[in-house]
Write a protein that binds this DNA or RNA. Sequence first.
RNA 1: GGUGAGGUGCCUGAGAGGCCGAAAGGAACAGUUUGCUAAACUGUCGUACGGGUAACCGUACCGAGGGUUCGAAUCCCUCCCUCACCGCCA
Length: 423
Amino acid sequence: MLQVSYIRENREKVLERLSVKNFKQPELVDEIISLDEERRQTQSQLDSTSAEANSIAKQIGELMRQGQKEQAEGLKAKSPALKERVKELGDKLASLEEKLQSQIVLLPNLPHTSVPKGVSAEDNEVAFEYGEKPSLPENALPHWELAAKYDIIDFELGNKITGAGFPVYKGKGAKLQRALINFFLDHAEEAGYREMQPPIVVNEASGFGTGQLPDKEGQMYHVGIDNLYLIPTAEVPVTNLYRDVILKEEELPVKNCAYTPCFRREAGSYGAHVRGLNRLHQFDKVEIVQISHPEKSYDILEEMSAHVQSLLKKLELPYRVLRLCGGDMSFTSALTYDMEVWCAAQARWLEVSSVSNFETFQSNRLKLRFKGKEGKTQLAHTLNGSALALPRIVASLLENNQTEKGIRIPAALVPYTKFEWID
RNA sequence: GGUGAGGUGCCUGAGAGGCCGAAAGGAACAGUUUGCUAAACUGUCGUACGGGUAACCGUACCGAGGGUUCGAAUCCCUCCCUCACCGCCA
């Protein structure tokens, strides 16, 4: 959520930035500005009317104490009109605030100046590419067939138990999952992140805090009976840990990480391109989250990006880094890097991480602030990234490392799997 | 699920219609003193919004929302949450 004061004072810039994000309702900006103007006027009127009412009440109290009953009664007569006016203005203010709020949450975050223009994934900028794409034998298989061949992931069983998009990992497949989670967590800890184990169902306020609600209601599984949501990413609980918190400046940056299952409804996406592990309703992910001083957040974004890349290098996976264009970026982000790994048998890039700086967009909703030495309280910046999401990593490991004698586990992972081959 | 108790500032905790944005203590921060540490002393010590270049002023907030009253942290109603005990249970 953008700050009204910022919009008010930077109208031109806001409009210009929104256009980079292909925002379709620029007229909202002016509506918000005029709504805010009316809101401020109304509040001024309300404040002075309340002040008058307060002062009369005080005088009455004073007169009563001195036993001057008649004078007190005289003053009381003034009260009803004021009271009515206070109520009127209060209602008006509340409705203006509500309207303002409902409009301002429709504005996406402003993209950073380095964000390329563009409307879709086609326009993303390849910032960096690393590693050799492996050349596979003629009879190479996509990962869903490899999974069946070695009996390590069972999509059919998942269908029976739950439905499509909920696979069952078996034997070395299950161990591989566990190994990757530990591998990612250990490296996050090494990079200074504190491991957390948050709840994986959250309340409405948390969904709002990180921006999933109200915009992306349909993306989450909703537990209606208790009005709770299954988390689509650990970002939600881990960032909301700091909702309504005022940190001390010297506590920054806050670095947390968490492994959680993630649940996404992914309504409307079916078909061949989402086969196998490519897109699931439940998957595992290790997330890294930072809360930063506004002046440091872009350095931190680079640091997080480097961390994610170091994991991919250790796993010996060819990858590329995309700088997302305005049109492809999420609603909440100011700058996002996507990391994609090469899946050799499918011959396509698959996103395994998304690292974003949200600047104050989330912290404004979360009321996540910090207080400097000078005593000034201001909004912190929040950032997060996947480090990493498992399914597509597994897909890529299976496809890229398939050989005559089985699937080779990269050396860095062997201490975690305790086996070198899936065969 | 049943019964009971309770939600006040960073924490503990007082306040029970006006003198309360809120005592007191602790924590924290700044300073004085001390050879260092500790102690002692002094001061600072909520947030948001509105107005003002600023000092500052106004308004709102004592779980949330309504109500009574000239006036509500305090009285009434509704809801939410927490804790304790019982039941069930990994």
